[in-house]
Design a binder for these strands. Structure first.
Length: 463
DNA sequence: ATGTCC
């Protein structure tokens, strides 16, 4: 039996002793644990002789890059001036969130930024932050829950369908959704996303595929939910083939579960290792898109985004089937992701971390709280927000403050007053913990127009 | 957000 693969083994083969090679070795040792050392070293020898043939390779690409064009690791300096930015609803946003944006605006890769009216402090970029960069992606400006998104299905049933069916609808939610860190859908679902070649080609994704399969169609915890309610369309929508009126609808909010969390963790680690920054902005470390890791993050991030969509689609499919009806229209959007978009005519990487894409004519959903309406919106394409809007009402009380100041009884009262049935839910998510969504919508009238209103009725959350 | 340490 061969001993554990070490850096010395590669040096003996003739690999140079560099930072890039060390990081690459760490990755290989991690994903080829089951392989014999001799086998790995034989492959490594090939890479050493013909590195160009291994560029972009899942396992050996980083090592090949380390030989041909290693990532330059050097302390990055912040700019003296911030790049342009706009804050929407400045008076409603805490100072820490603003400071975090100001820091991000001084990154040498920054192009333009914005803060949405629901912004609050987070890791790296604040939640509700939008940042355009030049050919670089910041894992912590996408967020830990990569691909977190909204999905709204309008059913072929009137809103009045809910009358007197509280018990039946509650059971459908309990039966066909899965919440919390461990709960999964009872019956397995197949989905094309699991056959995606990226799950095979990237060693990290390969190692996470089994878990992704298990968690498909689950919702997770925190502020995630699946809820029945009525949606009121304010005008005829030929684009959705829907007439003005009220319909039964299902609204869901969730992300990419363990898959996205692991991907975020992995590439944040690599970014911070290879992109040293002043301490207060270290979490804003980026990956150059012309590097192996940058390319790989982009592939992984987009696969994870597709997976998050697949989770919503699975939930909606199950519930439509349980209701015995069909979906007339679906509106959906990611709100934790990065996109390649034109900013003042130049292609940039636009990170939206808790922000709804709002280019002209793009539809999206901005939820309120469990007891207040969510809004179907159409983007106005405002360049000042980098074509974005808020992703919700935003927190008014911290999670700690909720535990201290709120009670389960007070929450139940407010839910009863609003006529909401809640399954699960914690004090963190109490209606009083959130800002007034109507006010937040007012603060972004230049960003989106409202085309419909969703009123929650039966809400399921974790716990 | 996440079996809450790469």
């Amino acid at each position: 039996m061969g001993s554990k693969l070490s850096g010395k083994d590669l040096i003996k083969l003739g690999f140079p002793q560099t930072n890039a090679i060390n990081i690459a070795l760490g990755q290989i040792a991690r994903y080829r644990k089951r392989d014999k050392k001799e086998r790995i070293l034989m492959e490594a020898k090939e890479v050493l002789v013909h590195p160009e043939q291994f560029m972009g390779h899942g396992t050996w690409g980083k090592l090949a890059e380390g030989l041909i064009k290693p990532v330059e690791v050097r302390m990055q300096q912040l700019l003296a001036q911030r790049v342009p930015f706009t804050i929407f609803g400045e008076n409603e946003i805490d100072e820490q969130a603003k400071r975090q944006l100001y820091d991000a605006l001084k990154l040498p890769i920054a192009v333009q930024g914005a803060l949405m009216p629901d912004a609050h402090a987070g890791y790296g970029l604040p939640i509700g932050g939008v940042l355009a960069t030049n050919n670089a992606v910041i894992p912590y400006a996408v967020g830990v829950d990569i691909g977190c998104r909204m999905s709204l299905s309008v059913f072929d049933l009137p809103a009045s369908f809910m009358k007197g069916k509280d018990f039946q609808l509650r059971n459908i939610l309990k039966e066909h959704t899965a919440f919390g860190p461990y709960e999964v859908q009872k019956t397995k679902a197949e989905h094309a996303v699991l056959d995606d070649p990226r799950f095979r080609d990237l060693p990290l994704l390969k190692s996470l595929r089994a878990k992704a399969y298990k968690q498909l169609g689950s919702s997770g915890s925190g502020n995630h939910f699946v809820e029945f309610g009525s949606v009121q369309l304010l005008a005829d929508r030929p684009d959705l083939q829907l007439g003005k009126g009220e319909y039964l609808a299902l609204l869901s909010h969730s992300g990419s579960r363990g898959l996205g969390a692991q991907v975020a963790k992995h590439y944040s680690y690599l970014a911070q290792k290879q992109c040293p920054l002043p301490k207060q902005v270290q979490q804003l470390a980026w990956l150059d898109l012309d590097t192996h890791d940058g390319q790989e993050y982009w592939l992984a991030m987009n696969l994870v985004a597709d997976y998050a969509k697949a989770c919503h689609d699975d939930i909606h499919r199950r519930i439509a089937k349980a209701l015995g009806t069909r979906v007339l229209a679906n509106i959906e959007n990611h709100h934790n992701l990065a996109w390649k978009e034109l900013v003042s005519g130049e292609e940039c990487i636009v990170h939206r971390k808790g922000a709804t894409p709002a280019s002209a004519g793009t539809l999206g959903i901005i939820p309120g709280s469990m007891a207040s309406p969510g809004f179907l919106v159409e983007g106005k394409g405002n360049p000042l927000s980098l074509q974005s809007a808020s992703h919700g009402a935003g927190r008014l009380m911290s999670r700690g403050a909720c535990k201290e100041k709120l009670s389960r009884a007070a929450m139940s009262n407010s839910l009863q007053e609003a006529g909401i049935t809640l399954i699960g839910g914690t004090l963190d998510e109490a209606p009083m913990a959130y800002k007034d969504i109507h006010k937040v919508m007012q603060l972004q009238e230049e960003l989106v127009s409202v085309i419909g209103v969703f009123s929650p009725k039966i809400v399921r959350m974790d716990k």
